[in-house]
Design a protein around this nucleic acid. Structure first.
Lengths: 161, 161
DNA sequence: TCCAATTAGTTGCAAATGCAACAAGATAAG
DNA sequence: CTTATCTTGTTGCATTTGCAACTAATTGGA
């Protein structure tokens, strides 16, 4: 029993107290890759005179609910943006006439954000550039099976404890 | 031969022009996961009165070359930080006496950054917190084999074209 | 009904980031 | 040797982010 106890103790110490070497490598790689890819894709967008990726993401979410629009907190949840930040991101989009911010009927505090015609137009113009940058910098680096596996692993990793 | 040609064409169109659905899912998941994990770990650091992760990363790099120190551009390459940004990050660290910035003997333009005693102390104080946050939020979510596979896939993805 | 607690969103202020221009030392070509 | 070019790093300015405090509307009890 002594051996088993020692084994359990070691296992516990190694598995829960200390991140393994593999864990640390994956952690570093995760941040490096994400940063590098984002930088490259953003650069491609900018070179073609297009706004940053955040704008695209918001517009894309909104384009899925053209009629009813979305509440700000809904966009925030989907994009993982804090509310104050989102508030000002919407300001910018509104100023550029890409979205409209209407008072909300069922909740006097909030507003409904809807994509405007110019917003749709921008989506259409940006997608070819985004698509190419995405494929060149990311898509073609892995086989379809690897891509599915990557998404699965990342999904597991971001599950709340 | 017509068929083969058509096949090739389709393949080309699908594989290089258009990111597949799997690619898009993995792309979204990559950014969501990274953002979420970073947020959680940064929060843990802050709750314990520790500085942001960037500080830790720089100090860690420097702690590997205690004697000779590192040039700023070397740190920049390893951490994927732009030079102007790094310049000011070092300013902050220097102001907090965590590093020293000495004139560089072999190149009059640059300087060598060395970790100071207080920097080492901070590393020691931060690691237990960082380690726990890393393990709880990331390490324990995957098996060791999955972790290795994740690092491998991310590595492939960030190879320059 | 009335009041406390929660939620949605905004705003002021400080800190961090990106961009472009810059200074100054190194390098290479003539 | 001289001059043009490249590299390393800094700085000013505008934009963006994070934090905390705030308003206003909703919800849920007593």
């Amino acid at each position: 029993m002594r051996v088993a106890f020692a084994t359990i103790w070691c296992y516990d110490a190694l598995m829960t107290l200390q991140p393994s070497e593999e864990t640390i490598q994956a952690w570093i790689q995760l941040h490096k890759s994400q940063r590098m890819l984002l930088e490259r894709v953003e650069l491609a967008l900018k070179k073609n005179g297009l706004p940053p990726l955040d704008w695209y993401d918001v517009l894309l979410e909104l384009s899925r609910d053209t009629d009813s629009g979305l509440r700000q907190y809904e966009i925030g949840q989907r994009m993982l943006l804090s509310k104050h930040n989102l508030s000002r991101l919407i300001d910018r989009l509104e100023k550029n006439r890409l979205v409209r911010r209407d008072a909300c009927a069922e909740d006097g505090r909030g507003n409904r954000i809807r994509i405007a015609e110019e917003g749709k137009a921008l989506l259409g113009k940006a997608w070819p550039v985004y698509r190419k940058a995405l494929q060149d910098n990311f898509g073609e680096k892995l086989t379809p099976a690897e891509m599915i596996e990557l998404a699965r692993l990342l999904g597991k990793v971001s599950k709340r404890s």
